[in-house]
């Protein structure tokens, strides 16, 4: 058991965690020339998204306005301003995967998971997103599940992957 006094609430814990992550990311990347992207990645790698309370700190550490930081975050598809689902599923929709039926795979995914492409399910179980090429075009259609690439994904394989308990590294 941690030696902390039992006073901390979950919200305070979370805010302390965000703070620690942001401080660490700033310490590592703020001095780097053009370090905003690595800094944002470091925060998102640790927390899964970019919580709004992190941004003022990032902006002041880099001597940028909040609007500038927001402008960068909104430009890039990768950066999340709301928490992702417990599992993040990306389905490739680019040409090579289309040639091998990725449209049908998207439809299948939406109907079996009960959600739209580009959303997070209200129960927080899944985020389902389009992606434009995973560099696995010889083995189309391809998907990425929690950072792991899968090729030649049939509907059956998709269902099996969704049922699988994620491997602990």
């Amino acid at each position: 058991m941690p030696a902390h006094p039992p006073a901390s609430s979950p919200a305070a814990d979370r805010s302390a965690e965000v703070d620690a992550v942001v401080q660490r990311a700033i310490a590592t990347h703020a001095a780097e020339p053009g370090g905003l992207l690595p800094l944002l990645h470091a925060i998102q790698d640790a927390l899964g998204w970019l919580p709004p309370d992190a941004l003022p700190k990032v902006a002041s550490a880099l001597n940028l306005s909040r609007a500038e930081v927001h402008g960068v975050i909104s430009f890039y598809h990768d950066f999340r301003t709301s928490p992702p689902g417990r599992r993040v599923v990306k389905i490739c929709r680019a040409e090579s995967c289309q040639a091998m039926g990725s449209d049908a795979l998207v439809k299948h995914a939406c109907s079996t998971l009960g959600m739209e492409l580009g959303t997070t399910r209200p129960d927080g179980a899944f985020t389902l997103e389009p992606v434009y090429c995973l560099g696995n075009c010889a083995l189309s259609p391809s998907i990425m599940v929690d950072g792991a690439l899968h090729g030649w994904v049939t509907r059956q394989r998709f269902d099996a992957l969704m049922d699988e308990v994620p491997e602990v590294e």
């Binding site: 680019a94 040409e95 090579s96 995967c97 434009y132 090429c133 560099g135 075009c137 010889a138």
Partner: peptide, 11 residues
């Protein structure tokens, strides 16, 4: 950045 669909030689 290898963004073109159908390419993976860089990777």
């Amino acid at each position: 950045d290898e963004g073109d669909s159908g390419t993976y030689s860089d990777r």
